[in-house]
Every structure is written in C-alpha cells, then in structure tokens.
Write a protein that binds this DNA or RNA. Structure first.
Lengths: 175, 175
DNA sequence: CTATTTGCAAATAATTTGCCCATGG
DNA sequence: CCATGGGCAAATTATTTGCAAATAG
C-alpha cells in the first residue's frame, strides 16, 4: 500500500474531479476496498444497506459508475452476464470457477505473468493493459461434485416469491 | 480446421448426447461459426431471424445454452452485463475496447502466450485453462475521440420508443 | 409414436431514467 | 446558496419459465 491510503486516494480523486465526497460514496468505497471477491452491485447494496439506512440500489449503481470514472475502481470481465466490480486498479489476474462463476484474485505472487503484447495494429486496436483469467473449479464445487450434481449459484438478488401464473390453462380456451 | 468441419463436429456432438439436430440448432450454430466478434444472444437472434422465420429469442437463448453444454460453443467473459458467445473452443485470447466494450479475438498468431499457471492450492482452486484479455481502445473509438466525446454503444436490443412517463407531475399532487 | 423442442406470453432479474428534495462545499 | 447527488417509482433491457403445439428420430 503506498503512502496514501486507499481512502485518501479516493478523496483526492473526488477533489481532483470536483465531485463532493458524500456519505454514500465513502461507505460504498469502504465496503469494497478489502474485498477480493468482486461483488455484483446487488451484493454491494447488501453490504452497505445496514450501515447506510435508506440507500437505494439506484444509488449503488450510480456510485459504482462514478467510482469507475474516478479511476479508483474497475469492472472485471465476468463469466456471468452481471456486473462485477474490482477495487484493485493495478494489473492483476483472476480465478474463475466454471461451475459457480466465483471470481477471485490470483494470490500467488511468485509467478510474474508478464505477457508479450500481440500486434493488433491490423485490427486498429491500441492495447493499454491486460488481465489473465484462469478458469477451473473452486474448492466448494469440487467437494459438491462428489455428492450432488453441479449446481448453479442462486440469483444475485433474492427471488421474491412464486406468484401463481396469471394465464390459467382454462382461461386460454385453446388460444 | 481439422478433418471434421465445424458443422460435422456439431452434428456429432448432438448425436453423442442423443439430442435431435433441429433446424434452429443448425442455423444458429452456422450463424455463429465464422464470427469473431462474440455476439450477444440478441445479436444472434437478429442474425438468424430472417432465414428462420418465427424464431423467438427464447429459442436462441435455449439453443445457445444447449450448444455450450454440448461443448461446441463457449461463453466469453464479458466486460458488459450481457452474455457474449464464442464459437472458438480452443485456447485463444481477446481484445476488449474499454470505451465501447467491443470484444474480438486476438489475431496475431506470432505471439505464443504460454503462461505459467499460478499456485491456487491455498485457494482450493484447480486450474484447467486460461484466457488473456487485452484491454485498450478499438479503431472506431480512437477516431471518434478526435471529434465527439467517447460514446457508449447502443443497447443490445433496440429500444422501442419513448412512451411518455405515466406518473405525470400533476398526478402525483406532491406525493 | 414418443421424447424433446419450440413458440408464445408472462414472470423474473438486472439496470437505468425522470423528477424533485437533500446536502456538500 | 447553488450545483450536484440521492431516493423513489417506473421504465427499459436481459433472461427464464410454464404450457401446449410441432417435430426429429
């Protein structure tokens, strides 16, 4: 960790962009800082809603967007079609579970993954950085596979209830 | 391309799993085979709907899922909150545009990106493969930035129309 | 024939927007 | 104060599901 703590970096970034440091922005950034599990916006919402009474998901989405613009947060490429935020802005790599879509940082610092950049000029592409996604099976799913069949994870946002189909078979009258 | 063409691989996979080779499955797989741009399900739908009158998005989603299960298709990690399908099943790498989320294959075959796998045993993770995502700016966005401010791409699925807010300011009567 | 698939519409999930009050600097 | 942000509800977009008709093998 450099001289400036992450929190100080965050405040500096706000000031540099002329954006007010609001309670919501601070709390959401705090809640994110230490996590290496790349939560979805809804998981971030769950994490902050108790200490920030009355926050809305809307605000979480908006703040996350702002933090990305400020450069203190990134979005990870996700194997699911759901946004995943990443508090690390420096180059690092990921482990992706093919069964449950868990997404965590690679911890092994021993391997220096310095990669030669491809020539993408023909494609008109200017490469700025890269990230390696290692795919495989996480601990939980390996255990599980000895008992149950591999199960997909629960939806990000708890399902409300099963509210009885409206179009009854009879009501259709053949249709 | 090996002895078996991709189409033959596909049919073999269906037979191996005891699944019927339907028109929809064949057409959708055909439409995908040659693309290196990792379309969203909706883009796949647009691509096939003219030659497959009456297909529904539901079917496209279901068929894509089936093709992934059959192992003839993969899902790419996506920087957006939208599914992206990938007809290449062998190891390969990607270019990701940070501005418009364009996602294309790396074409430069000269660079052999053989990467040393990290030790993820502490994390209980078994690594099977990997893919490198090179992030940067695509040709279109580079040109654009000289004129307009960088613009987000259009939504995957064309917006119907702007249907006048229902709760009129007056109707709320303060609220 | 019979299991599977498809199409439809509706349900569910994920994200964004409009409007107006609240708040930071 | 005054610009910007935040809360709320509704709109939009993305994906899934139940059911009956269609179809591959």
């Amino acid at each position: 960790m450099p001289i400036l703590s992450r929190m100080q970096q965050f405040e500096a970034a706000c000031r540099a962009h002329g954006l007010p440091v609001t309670v919501q922005r601070r709390r959401i950034f705090e809640a994110l800082c230490d996590r290496t599990d790349h939560p979805t916006p809804d998981q971030v919402y769950s994490a902050v809603k108790d200490t920030l009474p009355g926050v809305s998901r809307t605000t979480v989405y908006r703040v996350l967007d702002t933090l990305v613009r400020l450069g203190v947060l990134t979005k990870a490429c996700s194997p699911t079609a759901t946004t995943r935020v990443d508090p690390r802005t420096a180059r690092h790599h990921h482990l992706v579970c093919q069964r449950c879509d868990r997404l965590v940082d690679v911890e092994d610092a021993a391997v220096d993954h310095r990669v030669r950049l491809p020539d993408a000029r023909r494609q008109g592409f200017t490469i700025a950085d890269y990230s390696i996604y290692f795919t495989g099976v996480c601990a939980a799913c390996q255990e599980e596979s000895t008992t149950h069949p591999p199960s997909r994870p629960a939806p990000q946002r708890a399902r409300k209830r099963k509210p009885a189909r409206s179009r009854s078979p009879a009501a259709r009258a053949r249709g």
